[in-house]
Amino acid sequence: MFEVDELAYRSAALRWSPAGKFLFALSLLVASLMATTLLVPLVVLIIGVALLGYSVRFRFPKVIGLLVLEGVGIIILGGLVIAIVTPGEAVWSLDLGLFKLIFSDTGLATASLVTLRALAGIGIMLFFATSTPIPHFADMLVRLKVPKEFAEMMVMVYRYSFMLLDEAGRMHLAAQCRLGFRGRMNTMRTYAKMMVGMFIRSMETAERSNVGMQCRNYQSGVAMLRQPKGITYAWAGLSVLSFLLLYQLNELCVSSGILLG
């Protein structure tokens, strides 16, 4: 689960401003959502894949492949439903015996646009995820004037997650060694016992951790060894410019009838 987090700490784009990256990513995602032609999401997808490649130094690890595959599976299923439910002139049908799937022209156009938008979204999301560790994201939230308690809670949840996951891993291994996952009902009982163990231990850890933090005069807030960069006018300008360019590209495609969704 935390492979992406490890990738983020090794990313070539780690030192880029988190708020700048977020604004840029958001501008591309919104431009892609507002587009009515296939070309804009396609351009966003290419930008996303290029940025992702740069972020992981063009060495795509297995975890990225797995995440993309999982995402594509969900996207295809969703796209298929959209293609079926959208009304329009029927262009293709598939008889499955019990029921018949009818694909309309409008349905296929909408589904292809949504699928491409979602693929572009995965590219951009993975770029942001593989280049921004959670503490950097929390720091960005503080800079954006989100209440500091929220950012602090986020960082604490993140740090405790590592601890609990480690504990859960050990319990899982111990249960596996004792054939705890043999059969469905046995698996359920083992998981329930693991959860209780984790819950009780997490409460005890919370009590100990609280005392430890008080002893070290913890005053709340998000502390980091190396503070990430803040947003600059260049990032804001780049985000606005890319959004406007993509918007204009969409208008151009609509007026000339190129790759309409």
């Binding site: 809670m153 604490m156 949840v157 993140y158 609990l164 919370a206």
Partner: peptide
């Protein structure tokens, strides 16, 4: 604070 954060982590 720690109790809430650990619940979230859980």
């Amino acid at each position: 604070r720690t109790m809430l954060a650990l619940s979230g982590a859980f």
